[in-house]
């Protein structure tokens, strides 16, 4: 055969396959997200399932989110103190700590921790239901799995994440406060005064918006990968990993986008 050598065409074929399967995945995910949102909005609702999911996603994530915020806030205050001292700006510790926590670290680390807990659990649970035909069985029992399984998870995550992140912000700031007053000899009243006076309403709002977006991503990734898992135990394992990894990446990416839009101009 004349013309292009076989290997050369093979490379293009491989690239083509990769691009096509990538586009197909994006399309599938978009369709899934649309169905999930549409089903979340319309009745029948399952309030008991929603309450259950809010408890699982929100309440049981409090310890891990709280500890993450406490340790990170303290470490952040310490680093800002060290860095600031070099420029005679150690007094910026309260202001920069609260900004760093509320704008970025509170929502991002909180989101990542919840993704690690919740996306994986959702993918494993729905994945097991898929491979044991429980989802098919539900359909034959006059119940739409999108309404019964997926909508409550997505609504719960979107509602609960802002509350979790609010708690995370408060505990993170408190961590900075404790370290600064106990180790760095800051005056407590002065620290609180500087923190409160520097923080703006917009900072808190952006934090809450990020949290709601992350909540959507966390539940969507867990449900999507679980719902489409196949191939027994190994398939469920793969779905769980994919759910967590994709939730992490999408949280960090959407955080960047929101930060640039809100604070970049």
């Amino acid at each position: 055969m004349t013309g292009l050598p076989h290997d050369f065409l093979g490379v293009f074929r491989a690239i083509g396959r990769f691009v096509l399967s990538g586009l197909a995945s994006v399309g599938r995910l978009a369709t899934f997200a649309w169905r999930a949102v549409a089903h979340a909005a319309l009745p029948p609702y399952y309030p008991a399932r929603l309450a259950e999911q809010m408890l699982v996603i929100g309440y049981f994530s409090l310890p891990v989110v709280g500890m993450t915020a406490l340790f990170t806030g303290s470490a952040l205050a310490q680093q800002i103190f060290i860095g600031g001292s070099r420029f005679n700006a150690a007094s910026t510790v309260p202001a920069v700590t609260v900004i760093g926590i509320v704008r970025e670290l509170g929502p991002v680390l909180g989101g990542l921790m919840v993704a690690g807990r919740v996306s994986s659990a959702m993918a494993a649970e729905l994945g097991t239901m898929r491979v044991t035909e429980q989802i098919d069985a539900m359909t034959t029992l006059r119940t739409d799995p999108f309404r019964y399984l997926i909508a409550p998870r997505i609504i719960a995550a979107v509602l609960v994440l802002p509350v979790l992140v609010l708690v995370s912000n408060i505990i993170g700031t408190l961590g900075g406060f404790l370290l600064a007053t106990q180790r760095l000899n800051f005056n407590a009243a002065n620290y609180i005064d500087r923190t409160v006076s520097f923080l703006k309403f917009d900072d808190v709002m952006s934090s809450m918006v990020k949290a709601a977006v992350f909540g959507f991503i966390i539940a969507l990734m867990g449900c999507y990968h679980g719902f489409h898992s196949s191939g027994g135990a190994a398939g469920v394992g793969k779905a769980t990993t994919n759910a967590v990894v994709s939730a992490f990446i999408l949280i960090l990416l959407s955080n960047l986008i929101i930060t640039v839009i809100v604070f970049g101009s």
């Binding site: 239901m129 044991t132 035909e133 429980q134 098919d136 069985a137 539900m138 034959t140 006059r142």
Partner: peptide, 17 residues
């Protein structure tokens, strides 16, 4: 959904919740 309501199905593994 109305069509499916005519059916019951016994799944191979039971598929109990």
């Amino acid at each position: 959904a109305a069509h499916r309501a005519k059916f019951g199905m016994l799944f191979q593994g039971g598929a109990l919740f």
